[in-house]
């Protein structure tokens, strides 16, 4: 699909993957997330190639957001928390939704949200789960200006706290400026510039 690519993300670093449509950005992210086995290659977290270590420390958000349409915002978050063995109180979840700009939508079905709000709901999982490594596939798509600023601030804060972020994005000058690595996927040879 694409030429070999290899990179190391240190704590506090952001890598942005670029490439034309169909260059395999999503495939790379899914492979790293563990949704598709790497046909050849491996992902290591803190020197460990064990898959469960990787899964414990990373969170992936793809095109398919993973919200259940006929659960409310609160129920959606509650489920993600329990399936990840994270305990949260109702109050914490309400604060989280407020931060994501979804105050007042706590008891709305995910189905009734707009595309941007669905994205915000999914992104708020990142804040709840407290994983070190975020893998985000086009996180800025569907977000309004306010939403983009919120996400940008969220990523910045996460990096300051020693997290690492790998994402794909188009036309996001701000996020490209923040990036430590730019990875361009090409059919011939991938280009990594730091």
């Amino acid at each position: 699909m694409f030429a070999p690519v290899s990179f190391i993300l240190q704590p506090g670093q952001l890598a942005v993957i670029a490439g034309a449509n169909g260059s395999g950005k999503t495939t790379l992210l899914e492979a790293l997330a563990g949704l598709s086995l790497l046909r050849r290659g491996e992902a290591r977290f803190a020197q460990s190639a064990e898959q469960h270590v990787w899964l414990q420390n990373s969170h992936y958000l793809g095109h398919k957001l993973g919200n259940k349409a006929n659960l409310t915002c609160l129920e959606n978050l509650q489920f993600v928390a329990s399936i990840n063995a994270t305990s949260v109180t109702q109050h914490q979840l309400e604060l989280l939704l407020e931060e994501a700009g979804l105050a007042g939508y706590e008891y709305q079905f995910a189905n009734d949200l707009s595309a941007g709000q669905k994205k915000r709901l999914a992104l708020s999982r990142l804040l709840m789960l407290n994983k070190t490594f975020w893998l985000l596939d086009e996180p800025f798509v569907n977000l309004d200006h306010g939403g983009c600023d919120w996400l940008y601030a969220m990523i910045e804060r996460h990096l300051k706290q020693g997290g690492a972020v790998l994402l794909t994005a188009h036309d996001q000058k701000k996020i490209h400026a923040l990036a430590d690595h730019h990875i361009t996927l090409q059919p011939s040879a991938a280009e990594v510039s730091s």
Binding site: L35, H52, Q56, H59, Y60, K64, L65, G66, I83, N84
Partner: peptide
């Protein structure tokens, strides 16, 4: 699979 929530529990390490 279609709404992506399969990924949520597969990747949860469950």
């Amino acid at each position: 699979f279609e709404d992506g929530s399969l990924g949520v529990y597969v990747l949860s390490g469950m």
